[in-house]
Design a protein around this nucleic acid. Sequence first.
DNA 1: TTTCCACAGGAATTTTTGGAGA
DNA 2: TCTCCAAAAATTCCTGTGGAAA
Length: 403
Amino acid sequence: MPVFEPSEGIFDRAYVLSEDYIPDVIRGRDEDIQRYKNLLQPIMDGRDTKSILLYGKTGVGKTVTTRYLTQHLERDINEYHGINLNTIWVLCENINTSYQLAGAIINEIREPENHITPTGYPSEQMFRMMYDELDSLGEHVIIVLDEVDNIGTDDKLLYELPRAGSNNRLQDTKITVIGISNDLRFTDNLRQKVKSSLAQRELQFPPYDANELNEILRDRAEIAFHDGVIENGVIELCSAISANDVGDARQGLDILTEAGEIANREDSEVVTEEHVYRARDALEQDLINDSIGDLTTQGKLVLCSILYFERSNETPVRSKDVYDKYIKLAEYIDTSPVTQRRVRDHLGDLKMQSLILESTKNTGRQEGRYKEYKSYADVDSAISELDKDGTMEPIVELLEALN
DNA sequence: TTTCCACAGGAATTTTTGGAGA
DNA sequence: TCTCCAAAAATTCCTGTGGAAA
């Protein structure tokens, strides 16, 4: 008996809904694509190119458009000139220094068995290895730095990389750097010399409106699902939810995919609006669970402290009391507690991840100014997620006992 | 209008962790 | 095993904040 069998049901070609799928037609971006194409044309003509910085909010088509154009450029330049154009795609999501970026570029070029480790090399050695790898590719290379705004103030490479040819760091390879940023004010925060190197040409992608989202989702749904399985109003609802948020097509596609999977699991023959609402909630919960799973032990302890007060109906709770409880919980599992200052940082991180809510109180001379916290995540779900980490088991039992 | 409270959080520094290479 | 290296986590020190009370 096989363990897995092809799942039948409402999906026809589900991969069409994935992030990696590049459609034949990019909707709602005609003018942007033409301008982008003009900036890449010098590569086709064998002329020097400028670095390009593309920015716009999440899910407005920056990545898919870049993939679409670089893929066509690779094919066309090979057909007309017999030149091999390499595109190196680096997702800078977890990269915040030039050192880490150099390591990521090396690993993009190398085979997995030759990947390097993220630390241990002197900086200059790391940069030299990166330029050697790039030079070994020869001809023309496009380096796409997706979510480049994650690279903070350590931006040496963002300045150097676009100038690598003119600075003789590369002998045999020409490179073009494309930066993609979700932060509309990214260039405002760049040092002038980095800006003039990385963002010689800029392109901004505006958010999609509900009609454009509708078109995108409908196009994909027609291929991804069997005929007639999407009930009237489902596409419009997915578009409306994502347009109402930030005009994010990725979010709309994720909700549609999840709604389809829920319908599939329940052997439903159609995807309904109710599936869409449940999909939205499930995706939100997944995000929270992922955030909890990624917390350090100290971060989990701080969250446990707030969950303790939540279970005791004593929220919102001020930071001082969170710290006192945190100390007790740390002792409870034999972990050395960190300082109050550090716990404030952890509270800030938990707030950033939408796991807790924060409000400021000020009682003047009486008790001064302080912050209060309560859980934003569903308490039962948060506790069950914490339960997956064995080290938190005694505290999870304590929290369960409060129920 | 000034003082005071209790933190909040920025900046600099130190410690810890994990990896490379001799 | 030891030294070097970079990143991340944590600590220490300090100034800033804003509203009620004086």
